[in-house]
Design a protein around this nucleic acid. Structure first.
Lengths: 253, 253
DNA sequence: CCAAAAGTGTTTTCCATACACCCATGA
DNA sequence: TCATGGGTGTATGGAAAACACTTTTGG
């Protein structure tokens, strides 16, 4: 266990110099595929240990910009829909020594053994557009179905759980356009809602509700290549206000 | 403007040594008095500039514990009801140079000119129990009615606005026991709801709703010394679960 | 006795839920 | 033709909103 990963040590040295100490960002990137809610995870080099994507904030960088940067690098996507959802600030969040061992870092290194406060962000992305890209310390970046997520490094299982609760709390009854492709069918939208809420909905009532919201428009085409009746395609009306929460506007008096 | 406040500089040196850099906590302490929602503000020594209470996180201290500590020092209260509501992480949150000038700090001092990311907490406290206490840098700690809050230092007007929106979003229809004394009348509770929500409610419907919640019990006494009909006193049933939001419980798999 | 606030009812409206049927398609 | 999922209706129940009257007290 004393075979230190030298490039990793150098990487941390760089982070130590350029970024804010004691502070990190962890990202829960949600995608929806095959009727399942998925998250993007990273496998660390030379290990079978997985974690959430994350990173650090540069000294003169906005926190939101840092989050965008970090998530962009893992997904290849611009202008992600990001939501800050919780600060994980306990003095002891996980067993640091055991964790450094799992990812082959020197246990006694002072640099990375600082306690970190993590700012939790979740992203809603269109699954098919993502190009999963590992970072410097990892060798695999892949989607995991929420139900199958293994035991992760750090307190990342906890972070995912909190992210999911926040997502449920936030989205209420608004359609989740960021998780879907431009066009989709009503049953697909219903599966998405069911998956996030963790319950099953009545298709008739669901249809009425989303139609009543006035945010969808039906296209003339139908989904081709499915068995059974071909469902209509819909899309979110472009002119409508997005379902992003209203921006908190309040300026100094 | 070059009369530097030496003790202040020393204070910042201490903070610089013991606390996490680039990170601070700002607290919006809400109280309710005379049918008005109020916040606790501090006036800086030798100035007429006001700000929110705030402070820094020690290197091995939980963020929530730090917030408790900071708020306790300003209120004299233990075990405050605190809610983390937003991270203010823009790279430039306000005009630093102008601000340092207002509070008589050397404009070119490197120590306190670091950009800070602020973790916003709001507290709900019983107005009458608070002993407003200034800190080392301030000479007055006082309640301000939300409607009268002056132009504050930093971006604190903005932080208050966001705190209020978060409070409205969080509390939904739950009674706000932390803001009220042990006993209170239904009309008083109604005023509180109206003040926070910024709208007026129907007394009859309000009465039915809070009674239906089953969380209140009527005492035999009535509020004395009021003009007109004396209203009954109520209190929250002690055995009932508190109206604190359910703790986010989710452990590592 | 009158003004002002407290205390409680009934009616109506609306939204969420429950539920049933026909349609289109591939096998 | 039948199994499967798509698409749309109608009925019902419960909560929220609208609304009116009596009671108590100080002046």
């Amino acid at each position: 266990m004393t075979e230190y990963n030298d490039p990793a040590v150098r990487y941390y040295q760089e982070v130590f110099d350029q970024c804010i100490h004691y502070l990190s960002i962890d990202g829960v990137i949600f995608g929806f595929h095959q009727n399942q809610l998925k998250v993007l995870l990273l496998r660390w080099k030379g290990t079978d240990a997985w974690s959430l994507p994350g990173g650090f904030i540069r000294k003169a960088e906005s926190v939101d910009v840092a989050a965008q940067r970090i998530m962009q690098e893992r997904t290849g996507l611009d202008a992600l829909y990001l939501q800050q959802f919780h600060v994980f600030g306990e003095a002891v969040r996980y067993d640091q020594e055991a964790t450094w061992r799992k990812i082959n870092l020197p246990v006694d290194g002072a640099k990375w053994s600082e306690r970190t406060i993590s700012l939790g962000y979740y992203a809603l992305v269109e699954h098919s557009k993502v190009i999963p890209t590992p970072d410097f310390l990892t060798e695999v970046c892949a989607w995991w179905s929420l139900d199958d997520v293994p035991a992760l490094l750090f307190d990342h299982n906890h972070i995912i759980a909190v992210a999911l609760l926040s997502l449920r709390k936030d989205f209420n009854d608004q359609p989740l356009n960021h998780l879907l492709p431009d066009t989709f069918t009503i049953p697909e939208l219903q599966r998405l809602h069911e998956t996030i809420l963790g319950l099953s909905l009545d298709g008739r009532n669901f249809y009425k509700k989303v139609m009543a919201s006035g945010q969808l428009e039906r296209l003339s085409e139908r989904r081709a290549g499915t068995p059974h009746k071909a469902p209509f395609l819909y899309r979110f009306k472009p002119s409508e206000p997005t379902n992003r929460l209203p921006t908190l506007e309040a300026k100094t008096a």
